[in-house]
Nucleic acid binder design. Structure first.
Length: 572
DNA sequence: CTAGGGTTAG
């Protein structure tokens, strides 16, 4: 049976074409209105699909969503855009952005009309998948279709830029939004930028924006305060006192903390070692009818573990059951990490097996944590087995897994095994990283296998790798320890030629190396060079310097020597 | 039907 196209639908398509080619640039708003008017009109004549209302609550997982989508596409006429939007949005919430984007593309190919909502969902999907530039390219489509991107479109773009460490571009976009009035400056846009700035370490700029908000018509809400409190708590030097003041300011403005605000504070206290205070805050939150969730308990557990109060951590873990909260992968990883750090590896292993029994799959964090724990406990064989096991169950090792393996093997006297491991990595055609070689070179030097270290070091360029300051440092330290100062000096010269600046660690090693050999003139030269470069000797180098010069130059008083070698060091 | 804040290893 052929579908009869209603006359007014044809008419609306003509208008659409005409407006989009001639009038759009002058009258985008008018265009939108006309477009929307006719879209609704055309839908009103639909029969089967028009009545279809999607209830995402009935969708069970991705496959279900996909079959619903197929059903919707087959309907004639098709359900309205809104139902497609609901479905797409639901798929994004299932964290299946790539699927959502394929469907979005298919919808376009099938000629199913999309709305500004569909477009925003697509932009957001791209941003979540770290493909912000594709998100930006969709902005062009907005205009083609006669839509105007809104704050809802721009906030994911801003967030995506920040997440990709493109802080300058994010700030530029924000400035552009403000100066060209691209969209409404609402609390969500501010929140996105403030959070991005805090996470980029620019708390000062975040607060500037916050004060701008306060003065303007857009009042900060719980999200904004939580973001800033979190920013203060996680600033390089934690600023808990300021966070406390901000919390008071927040209450004064009658903005009240919610679950996430409390979780931020609880976590910050735990990380400061104030887990008992964190417990107090948890009690206060309950008094305020805010119910703790799994993240609250996970933070508390971590807090106890940091204080080596494993029994208390365990109590929190077990108390979750009574609150019908099921421990998640974080809960297990936190407790496993606690036990590993506390050298209670068997407890950690027990939990590891328990999670499998409960149907909870260990992730790469779990494996990395336990691998480290096993190596710390000198259980190399078990670690090697676990490394194989993780691959058997399909958990891909990452950069840190490989570092753990190499480092663990070296530290346990299995440098040769580490080298074999490194060979395997090379053969696998993995992305090689200079860190792998730094660990191996350091291991070889510490094992006194300087020739092997040198050979590995020399092979780096052929592998397409550049030594970094750590590589040079390992070699220099290796030579110094063997008293081979000429070689150490050569490496130092080499790195300078490659414009790799020696750090204070390297200078300290060299100065101590020359002092140990009694070559005081050389030691003094490098000491001077270090100071010239704004670096200072560490405690043990300084002690050696002072002792030696004191015995050699009796006429120097201690005061003179301090003036000479550590003018800025007030400790001595 | 679209957008912002919180927990683990290295």
């Amino acid at each position: 049976m052929r579908k009869v196209v209603p006359g007014h639908l044809l008419f609306s398509q003509k208008i659409y074409i005409k407006l989009s080619t001639t009038h759009f640039h002058q009258t985008p708003l008018l265009f939108c209105l006309v477009h929307r008017y006719f879209s609704t009109k055309s839908v009103s004549k639909c029969t089967l699909g028009e009545k279809f209302k999607l209830d995402v609550g009935t969708i069970n997982g991705l496959n279900d969503a996909l079959s619903v989508y197929k059903k919707m596409v087959k309907m004639n006429p098709r359900p309205c855009v809104r139902e497609f939007n609901k479905l797409l949005s639901h798929i994004v919430k299932l964290r299946e952005c790539s699927t959502a984007l394929s469907l979005f593309k298919e919808i376009r190919i099938l000629g199913i009309p999309v709305s500004e909502y569909t477009m925003s969902i697509a932009v957001n999907s791209y941003c979540i998948s770290n493909r912000v530039d594709y998100g930006f390219s969709l902005l062009g489509w907005f205009f083609k279709l006669g839509y105007v991107p809104s704050a809802t479109t721009f906030s994911p773009l801003l967030k995506g830029l920040f997440r990709g460490n493109r802080v300058d571009e994010a700030q530029e976009l924000f400035k552009k939004i403000v100066s060209e009035e691209l969209c409404e400056l609402n609390v969500v846009v501010y929140g996105t930028v403030i959070d991005g700035l805090c996470k980029a370490g620019n708390t000062a700029r975040a607060f500037e924006l916050f004060r701008v908000m306060e003065r303007g018509s857009c009042m900060p809400d719980t999200y904004i305060y939580s973001t800033l409190i979190n920013g203060l708590c996680k600033d390089s030097l934690s600023r808990l006192q300021e966070a406390k003041i901000l919390m008071k300011e927040m209450l004064g403005c009658k903005v009240y903390p919610d679950l996430i605000t409390f979780n931020i504070v609880i976590d910050a206290l735990c990380k400061e070692g104030l887990v008992d205070d964190a417990e107090d805050v948890a009690r206060i939150m309950i008094q305020n009818n805010v119910v703790p969730d799994i993240i609250t308990y996970n933070s508390l557990m971590d807090g106890y573990c940091l204080q080596s109060r494993f029994d208390d951590a365990r109590k929190v873990f077990e108390s979750m059951a009574g609150k019908s909260i099921v421990p998640d992968i974080f809960s297990y990883n936190i407790l496993i990490n606690g036990y590993c750090k506390g050298m209670k590896i068997d407890y950690a292993l027990h939990l590891f097996r328990e999670m499998a029994q409960k149907g909870l799959a260990a992730d790469v964090t779990t494996y990395n944590t336990i691998l480290q724990g096993l190596f710390c406990d000198c259980r190399c064989y078990a670690a090697l087995e676990l490394f194989d096991e993780m691959q058997v169950v399909g958990q891909k090792p990452n950069f840190f897994t490989y570092c753990n393996m190499l480092d663990g093997l070296c530290r346990n006297g299995h440098v040769q095994r580490a080298l074999l491991f490194l060979d395997e990595l090379e053969k696998k055609g993995l992305d090689l990283h200079i860190n792998y070689y730094n660990i191996a070179i350091d291991g070889l030097c510490k094992a006194g296998k300087l020739d092997n270290a040198r050979a590995l070091f020399s092979s780096l360029p052929s592998k397409g790798l550049q030594p970094d300051v750590v590589t040079y440092g390992a070699m220099i330290k290796g030579y110094c320890q063997e008293g081979l100062l000429v070689e150490a000096k050569n490496i130092l010269m080499n790195m300078k030629l490659k414009s790799c600046l020696p750090n204070s660690l390297i200078y300290n090693v060299i100065v101590r190396g020359f002092l140990a050999k009694g070559e005081f003139g050389e030691a003094a030269t490098f000491h001077e060079e270090m100071v010239d470069r704004g670096l200072s000797p560490d405690y043990s180098t300084l002690t050696l310097l002072l002792d030696l010069w004191r015995t050699r130059e009796n006429n120097l008083t201690l005061h003179n020597m301090i003036q000479k070698f550590a003018p800025e060091n007030t400790m001595l």
